[in-house]
Nucleic acid binder design. Structure first.
Length: 579
RNA sequence: CGGGGCGUAGCGCAGUCUGGUUAGCGCGCUUGACUGGGGGUCAAGAGGUCGCAGGUUCGAAUCCUGUCGCCCCGACCA
């Protein structure tokens, strides 16, 4: 491909709207152009990269036994009603408007994911356990009514996703969900490895759906919107929402202070009370009242900690917990909101482990405008149940005692054991070996293709521009033909271009009539892994220059050695990215 | 959805407070000349419903009202 016959609108400046590196560089390198908030055109150069990501994903999915199909973006809303997700997804579920309210438009949604559609396929065609297990996947455009698209292509309303769904008759055993899940997990490692991404697999929160396993594939970057925690010894990594923490030890600091009621008029929050009473938040017990299955559930955490509602629900064995409303709080505590405490409270109370090692604590008095100090568990109230029900914070340790580090990150893939949620809701079952109908046990597995591109740029860029992994670079090599009026330069450049192309190398020939610096800047901005420079100066000694973008190393190569040298560099890079 | 900011040429911006020539500047683009290993120089050009609608005024990019869009922080994120 020749530059002058291609289309690469690079730019020195980036729009003020772009604030994260991947967004700025994708615009400047001419990869994308925004159409509306959360939707982008992939310009030819950007599309080449996206297609390479897609090819890797497809290859590894096929290798793992996936079967590709293609589902529509338009779905009947009835199916979404069947699974209860019209309500669950709310505004995120995009609907066609403009109709009378009862025509096909208003009964059509744009799919943010495809569980419903694939489950219907399974219901229609998968009649026997003999057809299982099976794994269907597609690479398709998804639509989500994100409240706030941001960070370029990292969070958009329209994006390209690979979504796979596996069907089984059982969780365990040969052909079971566990096995199918593991296959996908392994395939994901292969995919992200080949894409050259510095990814981290973390335990993820599987949410109210349940299931014992869910993993997210994360790339650490400041532009991310999730946090992961990782133990120093590398043995533990989890999404912050999920992260388990080691118990805190008892410092035996105090424990003899008398229980005392203090007047705290209007001081309700931890900050207000700690400021008023001049005690540290860590000396306070935060008492949060939830509702679960219609009953009140009280959580106690240290004042400087936050309740992790998923952990709480799981620990309490109640599934989803929701914060209680003012009425229930008043009824339970006999006080206005802001003065709840464990002493004398008649409800199921679950204390975070950290609360069990507190002494002479401060907490609400269950009396409007009053708190109590000198509170000690065991003496002033009993802790019946305690465990890990809080969010991890800086300084916490993993369950094995290794220190936890926090990293901002972006999610690029997610594998998930769904179980029978959708198959039951949509009455999708097949006959098992025992002749009885069984709801499909399902898994689902997603990868954000656009995010892979952006994450790669976030991970690999410098002040000059992008530095692509070889596997997903739009071109492996750029040939900078300096001084195109020299016949020797153009003919050699063209020859190298043709030979490299014939050798299966993706090569772009910069044949523009521009000055050298201009071409170099563009080459570095776009981030071709390899740059070949053909110019008068080199030709005097019959050599061309070969430079590696990632390292900056350069070497002189004889023209007849170029193809072999480049081939070796490309292959080596592709191999190392695979691991 | 709450808070903040911004809409002037393809991109980056000035001008708006205090209304008044033909709305400017840089990058990019076109033509020509020079130049040619790190975004080069000179000259001549093209390119604008000042987001949109209404209002005030002799006169609106500028003032008023409404509206749309975009970005950032937060909330939300099966």
């Amino acid at each position: 491909m020749k530059w002058t016959e291609f289309f690469i609108p690079t730019s020195k400046e980036s729009p003020t709207e772009a604030t994260v590196p991947s967004h700025q560089l994708m615009i400047r390198a001419g990869l994308i152009r925004q159409v509306v908030a959360g939707a982008y055109t992939y310009l030819p150069l950007g599309y080449r990269s996206l297609r390479k990501v897609e090819a890797i994903v497809r290859e590894e999915m096929n290798r793992a036994g996936g079967i590709e199909l293609h589902m529509p973006a338009m779905h009947p809303i009835e199916w979404w009603e069947q699974t209860g997700r019209v309500a669950a997804m709310g505004e995120v579920l995009l609907r066609l408007g403009g109709g009378s309210g009862d025509d096909w438009r208003s009964r059509t949604v744009l799919g943010p994911t495809h569980e419903e559609v694939i489950t219907e396929i399974a219901r229609a065609y998968l009649n026997s356990y003999k057809q299982l297990p099976v794994n269907f996947y597609q690479i398709q455009t998804k639509f989500r009514g994100e409240a706030r698209p941001k960070s370029g292509v990292l969070r958009t309303r329209e994006f390209l996703m690979k979504d796979a769904y596996s069907f089984h008759t059982a969780k365990e055993g040969a052909g079971g969900l566990d096995e199918g899940y593991q296959k996908m997990y392994d395939a994901y490692r292969a995919i992200f490895g080949r894409c050259g991404l510095p990814y981290i697999v973390v335990e993820a929160e599987s949410g109210p759906i349940g299931g014992d396993a869910s993993h997210e594939f994360m790339v650490p970057t400041e532009a991310g919107e999730d946090y992961l925690v990782q133990s120093e010894d590398g043995s533990y990594a989890a999404n912050l929402e999920r992260a388990a923490v080691a118990p805190l030890s008892d410092q035996h600091d105090g424990g003899n202070a008398p229980l005392r009621e203090v007047h705290t008029p209007g001081f309700k929050t931890i900050d207000e009370v700690s400021g008023f009473l001049k005690c540290e938040p860590r000396k306070m017990i935060k008492t949060i009242i939830y509702e679960a299955n219609g009953s009140p559930l009280v959580a106690l955490v240290r004042g400087d900690h936050e309740v992790n509602e998923a952990k709480l629900g799981r620990f309490a064995g109640v599934g989803r917990v929701t914060p209680a409303g003012p009425d229930l709080i008043r009824k339970l505590t006999g006080a206005e909101v802001g003065f709840a405490g464990p002493v004398g409270l008649n409800a199921r109370v679950i204390a975070d482990q950290a609360v069990t090692v507190m002494h002479d604590a401060v907490t609400g008095a269950n009396k409007t405008d009053y708190h109590i100090t000198g509170v000690n568990a065991g003496r002033d109230f009993q802790i019946q149940e305690s465990g890990d029900i809080r969010m991890a914070v800086e300084g916490d340790r993993a369950p094995n005692g290794s220190a936890l580090a926090f990293k901002k990150c972006i999610e690029i893939g997610h594998v998930f054991k769904l179980g029978t949620k959708y198959s039951e809701a949509m009455d999708a079952k097949c006959l098992d070996a025992d002749g009885k109908p069984k709801a499909f046990v399902m898994g689902c597995y997603g990868i954000g293709l656009n995010r892979i591109m952006a994450a790669a740029i976030e991970a690999f860029h410098d002040d000059k521009g992008i530095s692509w992994p070889m596997s997903i670079a739009p071109f492996h090599v750029v040939i900078c033909a300096l001084d195109i009026r020299e016949e020797a330069v153009t003919s050699l450049s063209q020859k190298l271009h043709d030979e490299l192309g014939a050798a299966g190398i993706d090569v772009l020939l910069d044949d523009r009539d521009a000055r050298p610096g201009f071409k170099f800047k563009d080459a570095e901005l776009i981030g071709f892994p390899i740059r070949l420079t053909v110019g008068k100066k080199g030709l005097v000694e019959d050599l061309v220059e070969l430079q590696i973008r990632r390292t900056g190393e350069s070497q002189k190569v004889a023209p007849d050695q170029v193809v072999a040298t480049v081939r070796r560099l490309v292959d080596t890079a592709l191999r190392s990215e695979r691991t």
